[in-house]
């Protein structure tokens, strides 16, 4: 095989798929107007749930491939968290940020509880991870998901409703959109994708899991990725490629350019800042603007009492 392809399969694609799915889920979630500061916690819960799920077929002899089961369990648990967060924040006029951050800490705990037993009992997880070449299919699947979601948001009624609810939930409700239902759809879909990304993070990229994983802050980097791409599913593709590549080639950058490790760690964050500055000062700004009701507590005045 050509060496460049090896490099892409081993280094670029696993990181790309993870970042793409997590930031895609985050984008969908925030399009509905709910500020998502729980991203890093949900991401970590996804990794723990995936580990647990991947072991289930082995323990119970279920005829399903272990990594696929891992992905299913991770998306399911993340979607439940999404259901909780979006419904609570739509029903009650409370701070999105405070709920998100508390949920983050809570889901760090859930993630440890889910993954720790497997980590101790089985140690290495190479046996239940995706094969090396599978990352090609996973990339294609995630690209398809991205394109479909883009069309879903831009072309369908539900997609339009998600955007409307993010811009102004009151007007949307007046036009007959059911704010609660729409936000739940966006919330579950978004968090499920974040869980999917978390599952691939350990089953296809790292192939190991540790309690301390949540201190890496990759969820937050995906947060920055999503914003650097203006929450646009298609623009996210090159941006996550760039970020995934930057994160995963740090060691190469260090050795090739002869720079210290911490300078190399700086580069993805500087790149994110630079991208945001570039699009904010150009015409792209209007396309990439945040939903205008992002993070605003929603309270529907009752007229009938």
């Amino acid at each position: 095989m050509i060496p460049q392809l090896d490099y892409i399969i081993d280094k670029i694609l696993p990181a790309f798929v993870t970042f793409y799915l997590v930031s895609l889920g985050h984008s969908i979630f925030e399009k509905s107007g709910i500020l998502n500061l729980a991203i890093d916690g949900v991401f970590f819960t996804g990794t723990g749930a995936a580990l647990l799920g991947a072991i289930l077929p082995i323990i119970y002899n279920i005829p399903i491939s272990p990594p696929v089961m891992g992905v299913l369990v991770a998306t399911l648990i993340a979607a439940i968290l999404g259901l909780f967060m979006s419904s609570v924040l739509t029903f009650l006029p409370i701070s999105h940020g405070a709920v998100g951050l508390s949920l983050q800490f809570f889901s760090y705990g859930v993630g440890i509880m889910l993954g720790y037993y497997v980590r101790l009992a089985y140690g290495t997880i190479y046996g239940v991870s995706f094969a090396r070449e599978d990352v090609l299919y996973l990339s294609i699947i995630s690209l398809v998901i991205g394109v479909v979601l883009h069309l879903f948001i831009e072309r369908t009624k539900i997609g339009a409703a998600i955007r409307a609810v993010g811009e102004n939930p009151h007007s949307a409700a007046a036009l007959g959109v059911r704010v609660m239902a729409i936000r739940i759809v966006a919330g579950m879909l978004g968090f499920a994708l974040i869980g999917f990304g978390g599952a691939l993070f350990i089953l296809s990229w790292q192939r190991s899991w540790d309690v301390k994983l949540f201190t890496l802050g990759y969820g937050w980097l995906a947060f920055a990725t999503a914003l650097a791409a203006g929450r646009h599913p298609i623009v996210l593709i090159p941006v996550s490629l760039l970020f995934g590549g930057l994160v995963n080639s740090q060691t190469d950058l260090q050795s090739r350019l002869g720079i210290p490790a911490d300078v190399a760690k700086l580069i993805p964050f500087l790149a994110a800042l630079a991208l945001m500055l570039i699009y904010s000062t150009t015409r792209l700004r209007r396309i990439f603007a945040s939903p205008s009701s992002l993070g605003k507590p929603y309270y529907k005045e009752e007229k009938s009492i």
């Binding site: 609570v88 009650l92 409370i94 701070s95 405070a98 709920v99 951050l101 508390s102 949920l103 983050q104 800490f105 809570f106 889901s107 760090y108 705990g109 859930v110 440890i112 509880m113 720790y116 037993y117 101790l120 309690v211």
Partner: peptide, 22 residues
């Protein structure tokens, strides 16, 4: 689960703060 007490800490911290925020 020896060594995972951190989970307990985060769960407790998270559930109390979550209740408070809500």
């Amino acid at each position: 689960l020896g060594g995972a007490e951190m989970a307990f800490k985060l769960l407790m911290f998270g559930s109390i703060l979550l209740a408070y925020s809500i």
